[in-house]
């Protein structure tokens, strides 16, 4: 495992920790999109179907379990926890996320590495992850006061994607047989979705003003 990959996984983990901190400690999910969180839970469930079939490493297994458990518990908190759910900004989180699922499934049936159940589900998870951030970005645009933890959460998620691209470039040159075009293309699309957010995030940080996305 190279340094970019490890750094990418760590920023991904950090984003989850920041979100859980906000939800578990501050008991607030203000500014967080339940739609995006539900999509992530679906992404991990679809991608990690081989969890108990293919053992890669202890690191791999533990990280998969962490992402599965955290994504489902975040959804649970936002839907069921009696204090947290009251802070959910339902009125602004209106993205029709169900309409993302079917096209991703259709695309996975058409474009996959092999036409088997697990490979189709893997491709589906890659496509869905690429667009899963959209409800969150829309909600941020509609949020007047984006708190620091929410901003940091999205920033770390975006950083994880950038680091994964650097990891692929590194692997391309060091492991000639390592080419997953599906994840590369979807990953680049996913990262581009953050470009706008990154711009405003860095500007607010540089100028030391509160983060706000133009509508």
């Amino acid at each position: 495992m190279n340094a970019f990959r490890l750094a990418g996984d760590m920023t991904h983990l950090l984003s989850v920790v920041v979100l859980l901190l906000k939800i578990h400690t501050i008991k607030s999910c203000a500014g967080i999109s339940l739609k995006t969180q539900e999509l992530y839970a679906l992404v991990f469930a679809a991608r990690y179907l081989d969890l108990f079939i293919h053992f890669i490493s202890l690191y791999n297994t533990v990280m998969k379990l962490v992402f599965l458990a955290s994504s489902f518990s975040i959804v649970w908190y936002m839907r069921r926890h009696k204090i947290v759910r009251r802070t959910y900004d339902k009125d602004h989180d209106t993205f029709r996320h169900h309409f993302l699922v079917l096209p991703c499934l259709a695309l996975a049936l058409l474009i996959n590495e092999r036409f088997t159940f697990r490979e189709v589900m893997w491709a589906f998870s890659i496509y869905l992850e690429a667009v899963a951030i959209l409800p969150q970005l829309v909600l941020l645009q509609r949020t007047r006061n984006i708190d620091n933890l929410t901003g940091q959460y999205v920033f770390f998620l975006g950083a994880y994607r950038v680091l994964y691209i650097l990891n692929w470039i590194y692997r391309y040159f060091t492991e000639p047989h390592f080419v997953h075009w599906i994840s590369w293309v979807a990953g680049i699309v996913q990262t581009l979705l953050y470009a706008d957010f990154f711009y405003y995030y860095i500007m607010s940080w540089k100028n030391n003003v509160k983060l706000e996305l133009p509508a």
Binding site: H12, I56, Y164, H177
Partner: peptide, 10 residues
């Protein structure tokens, strides 16, 4: 085969 490449990323 290409499909046999281990998917070791998260």
């Amino acid at each position: 085969a290409a499909g046999d490449i281990v998917k070791d990323e998260l």
